[in-house]
Design a protein around this nucleic acid. Structure first.
Lengths: 138, 138
DNA sequence: TTAGAACTTAGAGTGCACTCTAAGTCAAGT
DNA sequence: ACTTGACTTAGAGTGCACTCTAAGTTCTAA
């Protein structure tokens, strides 16, 4: 069973070694196995956990909530329903957030098209040298 | 032509009065008209601008970029293409971000179903009081 | 065997986007 | 006239999630 050094994990996960230690210190990761030297040895399981935590993080779960999730995982592993509840709440949060992003994206796209129209008009004005459209460019 | 006080704007936009002043101080908003008393009087145009800025902010545009956009708006209003370029870059960023969220959401949903299976199994184990499934609940 | 890289820790520092405080001015109601 | 409350400013403080530093230990390659 082979293990990885903190740098190798950092490379593969995109987190910094600093961040990996920070996560462990704050209970997001259970204590990682150590070599005789005291250096951390990450197992494949550790990697899978880090990967999932990273997904929670990238979808905006605060560290506090991740601590809660990790605590349940360690202290009450049989309470699967509690862990599921956290994930389901987060699922709804993420869905809401995506919808919000999409609504705002549409408004931004609308403005991009508006700017395109404005630019076409600028072109015409320039070519014909007629100050026909002097609407404010909002 | 009627104007709004900072509190009214705060209410309507969901930003705090503090944040509205902060935005103005940092050049995200051009200087708002003042009453004789020095109090800010927000126009309908100001409101539209704040609304759009809020959309940029909610989709994750950093304050720095919003400053750049606002600067172009004030100092080079004819450079519509430059403003469009900023929005188009941001559009791509937001699309990428949404895709990332969706990928991560799927992984979370996958784990939720996995937990459901696990819970069903726990039920069975409990009812039949047979320790058949002792797989680790990951 | 020894230089240099990688690791360890506790704790301080950073960057972002607010968020609040203190001290003061102004306007409306009683 | 006076109280209440909203407004003003400059600047300090907050919370989050890292990110780095300093001082020391250990591994690896020449």
């Amino acid at each position: 069973m082979q293990t990885l050094t903190i740098q190798q994990v950092a490379q593969q996960t995109g987190l910094s070694a600093h961040t990996l230690r920070y996560y462990e210190r704050n209970g997001l990761l259970e204590p990682i196995d150590r070599a005789r030297s005291g250096h951390r040895c990450y197992s494949a399981e550790d990697m899978a956990r880090i990967e999932f935590l990273t997904r929670l993080r990238m979808t905006g779960m605060p560290i506090r909530k991740m601590q809660e999730f990790a605590w349940l995982f360690r202290e009450r592993p049989e309470a699967v329903g509690d862990r599921r509840a956290i994930l389901e709440t987060h699922e709804r949060d993420v869905q809401t957030h995506i919808q919000e992003l999409q609504r705002n994206l549409e408004a931004i796209q609308w403005k991009i098209s508006y700017y395109k129209q404005l630019e076409a008009q600028q072109q015409l004005d320039g070519t014909a040298s007629s100050p026909s459209s002097n609407s404010k460019a909002v």
